[in-house]
C-alpha cells in the first residue's frame, strides 16, 4: 500500500531520467482538503516523483485520512508553530534521502499538481537553484485579498532592492529546490526559518539563484489560511525585523 505512492506519476521526466524528485505536501488540519490534494497529485502530477506528506501535528482527522489513502507520511511530534517547521523537516528528509529535487506543495489543494513540471523545469535545465510558482505573473486564477497583495508587493519591492531580482509572489508555497539548495538549507543554514523574507535573503546571500514561473492557484475552499487577522499585523512586523536582522548576519551565510 505504502509503496504504491513511491512512484505514482504518469509522465517520466524525459530530460533527466536519473533525477530523483520528492514532492512534499505540508499538512496542518487540512482534513477537508488533503484528500483532494492527494487525488490531484495521483491523477495529474506532471513529473515522476515520490510523494510524502509532512504533518505538523494536526489535531483533526487528516492523518487518518492520509493513512487510509495509502500515502507515505511523516508526523511531527509537536506543532512547530508555523509552516516553516515543515519546510525545515522537508529539507532534512530530502537531504538524507539523497533527492536531487524537492518540490513543495501545500495540503490545502490550492496548488496544481499538473503544474509541477513548470517549477521543476528550470532546475532540470540548470537555470536556477530555487523556483517559486507565482500567481501574479500570468494573473490567472485565485489572486488573494487586496491587503495581502499590497503586503506582498511592498516586501517584493524591498527584497528586490537588496537582491536585484524581481519577486512577485514571495509568500507562495509552491516551490522547487535543487540539490544545492537542499544542502544549503539542510546543512549550512542551521537556523529556524521564520519568515519568507528571511528565506529569500538567506538564499540570495547563500549564493543560490531563484526564479519565478507563472502558475495558477485555486482559492482555498476549506480551513483557514495562515495569514489571518493577527498574522496580518504580525507578519509585516516580523518580516521587516527579520529583513534587517538577516542583513546584519548576511556575512555568516556566505
Amino acid at each position: 500500500m505504502l509503496y504504491k505512492w513511491r512512484s505514482i506519476c504518469r509522465e517520466i521526466n524525459q530530460s533527466e531520467p536519473s533525477m530523483r524528485i520528492i514532492l512534499i505536501v505540508s499538512n496542518y488540519n487540512e482534513e477537508k482538503a488533503i484528500i483532494n490534494t492527494l487525488n490531484d497529485i495521483r491523477s495529474n502530477a506532471s513529473v515522476s516523483c515520490d510523494v510524502l506528506v509532512v504533518d505538523n501535528c494536526s489535531t483533526d482527522e487528516s492523518v487518518k485520512l492520509i493513512r487510509d489513502a495509502g500515502a507515505d507520511y511523516i508526523r511531527h511530534p509537536v506543532n512547530t508553530g508555523g509552516s516553516a517547521g515543515v519546510i525545515k523537516t522537508a529539507f532534512t528528509y530530502a537531504y538524507y534521502h539523497n533527492y536531487d529535487i524537492y518540490c513543495h506543495m501545500d495540503g490545502d489543494n490550492q496548488h496544481m499538481a499538473a503544474e509541477l513540471q513548470k517549477i521543476v523545469n528550470p532546475l532540470v535545465l540548470g537555470t536556477a537553484d530555487v523556483v517559486t510558482g507565482s500567481r501574479f505573473i500570468a494573473r490567472e486564477g485565485f489572486q488573494s485579498s487586496r491587503s495581502r497583495r499590497l503586503g506582498i508587493y511592498i516586501f517584493s519591492w524591498l527584497l528586490s532592492l537588496f537582491t536585484g531580482r524581481r519577486y512577485t509572489d514571495i509568500t507562495s508555497g509552491f516551490r522547487a529546490y535543487n540539490r544545492r539548495a537542499i544542502e544549503f538549507f539542510a546543512k549550512r543554514f542551521k537556523q529556524e526559518i521564520e519568515t519568507v523574507t528571511q528565506l529569500e535573503l538567506a538564499m540570495h546571500y547563500g549564493g543560490l539563484t531563484g526564479v519565478e514561473v507563472a502558475v495558477t492557484m485555486r482559492p482555498r475552499t476549506s480551513g483557514k489560511s495562515e495569514i489571518n487577522m493577527i498574522n496580518a499585523i504580525k507578519f509585516p512586523v516580523f518580516n521587516i525585523i527579520s529583513l534587517l536582522g538577516t542583513l546584519i548576519q548576511m556575512r555568516k551565510l556566505r
Binding site: 512547530t80 517547521g85 537556523q191 529556524e192
Partner: peptide, 21 residues
C-alpha cells in the same frame, strides 16, 4: 535551543516514519 528543537522534531519524525514503514 529553538534551532535544536526544530532539528529534534525533524529527526524524531523521520525516525518514527522509518520505524513505521
Amino acid at each position: 535551543m529553538s534551532d535544536k528543537i526544530q532539528e529534534l522534531i525533524s529527526f524524531s519524525s523521520m525516525l518514527e516514519h522509518d520505524i513505521r514503514v
